[in-house]
Amino acid sequence: TLKMLRLQYAKAPSPPLKNAPAAHRDLEDELIALVIDRAFLDEADEIRDEMAFDAALRAGRPRLHAVSQEVHELVSNILGQYQAIRKRLSGLTQINWLASTQDMQGQLDRLVFRGFLQAVPWERLRHYPRYLRALALRLEKLPLDPGRDQRWIRELQQVQEAWRERWQVACEKGVVDERLEEIRWLIEELRISLFAQEVKTAVPVSVKRIRKRWNELGL
């Protein structure tokens, strides 16, 4: 129910992007906005007059019920996994796991924050259950071999640190740099390939490939 989803969402942090528009919205309004976007405004850029708007309404109306169910299922999955991971992470207090738990908390905070349902494109939200499943698996594996987790962190840092610096500066300025967003989702895939190979990546990914893309994008 919405009440449960609200509870799961209650501890999500503030958005990283300065002056993010949806930061203080209630979850119900975020969900309604997402349903409206999916049902009526997929081609929002092309709606420039009343005729186009009426056409969008006519096309979207029959989809409304199915879209609302699709949105509800996805968001329930995301917030359910989110809460379980957040709870487990906060229970891990071993000092020698700190590098791993801080890395995971950082990842989680960048994925789920107030307003993320509007800030993150739908195409990406659809991948969230996979990102979160990989994170949960990593959490399970951590006690078995914390040294291995830390080795993967060092591997990840070869691309993540440069990206994070640039991304944080952009967020502080309130700017979304599409190139940094593209790298960001590649880093999410890299995390899967390093920490939870059981979960399949959406695209082939490696440190080398990300560096190559970084250069191609002129970053």
Binding site: I32, A44, H72
Partner: peptide
């Protein structure tokens, strides 16, 4: 642009949006 269009949709179909909100509240 998108936020403006969303507001227009909300105004254009109040009954459907009310129904959506009602369904969200249901267990």
């Amino acid at each position: 642009h998108r936020a403006g269009l969303r507001r227009l949709v909300l105004l254009a179909m109040p009954a459907e949006i009310r129904e959506l909100r009602r369904r969200l509240q249901q267990p």
